[in-house]
């Protein structure tokens, strides 16, 4: 691309591009970030397995609240968006900008569907009586999945900007492919975090008749 010895093009000591290395470092750091959020949710599930009390004073178990069909659908959507992202990166490596645009539009579309599902889920739960204020469960659940959703939203914004930027003709060559690959790494990471959340937050609630955490002690509610 640039004929001069751009600092970012200079060969590196390890042979790994700076941008790719820094993205992996960021993802390593983000592991601790989501680890903290997920473990906050899990340890409160362990302490208070009995769910929450809704506005009418009814005891509600989380199994009755979750809609596993919807969550499975959005999980599937996110996995497939990751697949399309891998194809988009591959297309950039081959220099096929049109194929890149097609795939990245797919990723954006699927990402928006995922966000739509999450908005629907939040609204649904809210009307069922789970709020961020009325229980610890509400706080941990909304903040954990909401933070993940924010990551998805940032990814969607990033890819949309990249999609339009590709029409300026400046997204190309080695640096362009690298930029797309780095965005892809971020997108895949958001996907693998969801793989963990899907199992640790949703699926375990269906194990046995009362879920992995049981119904245990009466919930501390307000």
């Amino acid at each position: 691309m640039s004929e001069t010895a751009d600092a970012h093009d200079a060969p590196t000591s390890t042979g790994i591009d700076h941008k790719k290395l820094i993205m992996w470092l960021f993802l390593a750091s983000d592991c601790m970030f989501f680890g903290t959020l997920i473990s906050t949710h899990l340890l409160y599930r362990k302490l208070y397995p009995s769910g929450f009390t809704d506005a009418e004073g009814h005891q509600r178990f989380i199994q009755n609240l979750f809609n596993i069909e919807l969550t499975s659908f959005s999980t599937f959507i996110l996995l497939m968006s990751s697949f399309l992202m891998a194809l988009a990166v591959s297309a950039m490596h081959k220099g096929e900008i049109k194929s890149f645009r097609r795939n990245v539009l797919g990723v954006i579309f699927f990402g928006l569907i995922f966000l739509g599902c999450q908005v629907f889920e939040f609204t649904h739960f809210y009307h069922q009586g789970l709020t961020i204020q009325n229980s610890v469960l509400g706080s941990t659940f909304y903040v954990l999945t909401g933070t993940h959703g924010t990551h998805v939203a940032i990814g969607v914004l990033w890819l949309i900007l990249m999609y339009f930027y590709s029409f300026t003709g400046k997204l190309g060559g080695h640096m362009g492919a690298l930029d797309v690959e780095v965005a892809g790494l971020y997108w895949h990471f958001v996907d693998i975090v969801w793989i963990i959340i899907f199992t640790a937050v949703y699926l375990v609630e269906y194990l046995g008749p009362n879920g992995f955490w049981g119904t245990g002690l009466p919930a501390v509610t307000k």
Binding site: M32, F33, T36, I132, Q133, V136, G138, T140, V143, V220
Partner: peptide, 30 residues
């Protein structure tokens, strides 16, 4: 890079407690 994410999340949780009435560290809500 490995230690700061823990405080980042803790600060987010505390901020949600104070600003939006969440219950992460609110003893009267468990």
């Amino acid at each position: 890079i490995l230690a700061f994410p823990a405080i980042t999340v803790a600060l987010i949780e505390l901020m949600f407690d104070r600003a939006f009435g969440a219950n992460f560290f609110n003893p009267s809500a468990g």
